[in-house]
Design a protein around this nucleic acid. Sequence first.
DNA 1: TATTATCCTACCAAATTAGTAGACTATTGT
DNA 2: ACAATAGTCTACTAATTTGGTAGGATAATA
Lengths: 135, 135
Amino acid sequence: MLSKKSQYAFKALTYLTEKYGQGPVLISEISKKKKIPLKFLENILLELKKEDILDSKKGKGGGYFLKKDPAKVKMATIIRLTNGPIAMLPCVSLYFYERCKNCDEKQCGLHDLMIEVRDATLQIVENRTLKDLIV
Amino acid sequence: MLSKKSQYAFKALTYLTEKYGQGPVLISEISKKKKIPLKFLENILLELKKEDILDSKKGKGGGYFLKKDPAKVKMATIIRLTNGPIAMLPCVSLYFYERCKNCDEKQCGLHDLMIEVRDATLQIVENRTLKDLIV
DNA sequence: TATTATCCTACCAAATTAGTAGACTATTGT
DNA sequence: ACAATAGTCTACTAATTTGGTAGGATAATA
């Protein structure tokens, strides 16, 4: 399951996608409209800025906005940044790989099955973007 | 990601699948062969017994064994019992559904996408069984 | 009735998650 | 220049989940 942080991130990004091209949006506005705790949201947006997804402006007329065209931001990227691995096991993760101890990957049935699951998921989330979140 | 508990469960079930039809297997044997902390494994196996996946015998010659043919035990069932929801959001979970607050499911792009992901995963884990774990 | 082995209740420590506090810094309008 | 605005940053805290452990109770067998 996606963490609250990740779910909040998606809500905020959806809002910013709707407002794309209309200038900066206040954290407080996103917080109110999407019912996300203000200070928690601050942290999340700041992190997404550091990860190059968002950009911001300070002072009057400031706020947050998407750094790139929402059609160019993959769902997979956001899941990884806000929630971590997409795969169900460390030993089948592409971006967070860890070898499993006491288990030969070459002859582990679970390994093979979890690769299948991973790929089925990636097929979707690598081919959808923020743009696909708005109706 | 699957929890340690869930990963241990799969290792133990793989072992019991290999030994299927050969009588009870000691917890201590599974623990040693699969390198799983003994007392933790006890809890896991006991839970799987209560969930009707395993059965056991006490006393000399006792141990644990699969209650049903491994070809009849779906991967999806084990994931749900040992790790919880398969879906990425409570509002798209079939077995652990929770309505999301402040969000109309009818017009939530994330909702629709997460249903797709869920179904792609289910397509695999509902159609594979413990039998498919052995080489 | 001793031995074997699971069953059960309860506990514990570490890690993660979810959220808060408050001071600091940069920008803008007057 | 300076007040107001709005993001930045460090640090903390509380609650929950995870990953175990301890030790006695119970049941089956020999």
